[in-house]
Each structure stands twice: as C-alpha cells, then as structure tokens.
Amino acid sequence: MDTEITLRVDGADHRLTVDTRTTLLDALRERLGNTSPKKGCDHGQCGACTVLLDGRRANSCLALAVAHDGAEIVTADGLAVDGQLHPVQRSFIEHDAFQCGYCTPGQIVSAVALLDEAAAGWPSAVTFDRPDGAPDTGPIDVAGEPDEIQERMSGNLCRCAAYANMVPAIQEVARS
C-alpha cells in the first residue's frame, strides 16, 4: 500500500512515496541514501538506528514512516554544522570512544539527546537512588555522575564494548 509522505531530514525537505511497511530507518537508508543511522538488530534493542525525531531520540527501526509524515529528523550526519563537528562528535574522537564504529552514529545521537534531557530536568532510573530522590524538576548535572550517563545510554549497545571511553567523552561535553 503506497503512501506519499514528506520528511525533513538534516535540514532538507524530501517528498517520497513509501509502502506502509517502510520504517523510518529504511526510508532514510534505502530511499534517501542517508546511511548514518545503522541497522543493527532491527527490533529496537540495540540503538544503532537512533535519530532525533521531532527533537527527541527514537529507534527509527520501530517507527513506521507513514506514521511520521511531516516529521523533522536529525541523524548523526546532520549534527555537524558547516563542516564543524558537533562537540559530542569531537569528544568521541578525542576520547577514542569507538572501535569498529558501527554503533557510533546512534551512540552520538543518543549522547546529544541525553545532554538536552538532563538539562531539561528529566530524571533517569538512577536519579531516584539519590538520597533526596528525584522530586525536583531542575536541570540534572550528569557531568560528575558516570552512573547517570551509563543508565541514560543503556539503550545503545556496543559489541566492541567501547563504553569505557564513551562515558568520559560525554562527561567532558556535559562539563563544558
């Protein structure tokens, strides 16, 4: 069943006809040639397909394109502005926060979203472990809290297990 939709991807508008079965991930990769989001498990378990969907991180493999007609999508490819890498991208390079690189675009999009979410005061499961719990709604400082970063990044798996350098990479951006 074909349907015509529009998507704004990394700042550019696209009009395309998709089968109702097409996921956002397949629309991006197969139809628009944007191979930045990766197909890992294709079941929402690994996070390699993570993109910002209308400003929030989401597994593009579980989102039907037809259900997101008109959406604004940012992939890791679109985080760089005028050839300047995003601070999280730079920090991943400086901290050697990857090995094979397959999960990296998803990790980076997730990390960018994580910093926004913490600034907006979104708690995580470990925020409630603090002595005062998480009743407050102010910004949550994750720079000095590796457990907060680990918890908030838990939806992105890395088979090379490059996690040890990702956490300091994200902490450094959170500090600045």
């Binding site: 991180r57 989102a63 994580l114 979410e117 708690p123 499961a125 925020t127 409630f128 939806g155």
Partner: peptide, 29 residues
C-alpha cells in the same frame, strides 16, 4: 509521564517504574 512534576511528587513509584523499563529512545515513542 516519568518526567512530569505532579507524577514525581505524588506518585514517584509510577515515574520510577517507567524509567526502569526500556530505553529513552523507546520511552519517547
């Protein structure tokens, strides 16, 4: 739901349970 101030104050168990499941990418959808 999990970030809502009213829920966090009145019913922290609800916010905690939601945040104990899935990942942020899934909870956003």
């Amino acid at each position: 739901l999990a970030a809502d101030p009213l829920i966090r104050r009145r019913c922290p168990v609800v916010a905690q349970a939601v945040l104990g499941g899935a990942s942020t990418q899934l909870r956003n959808l």
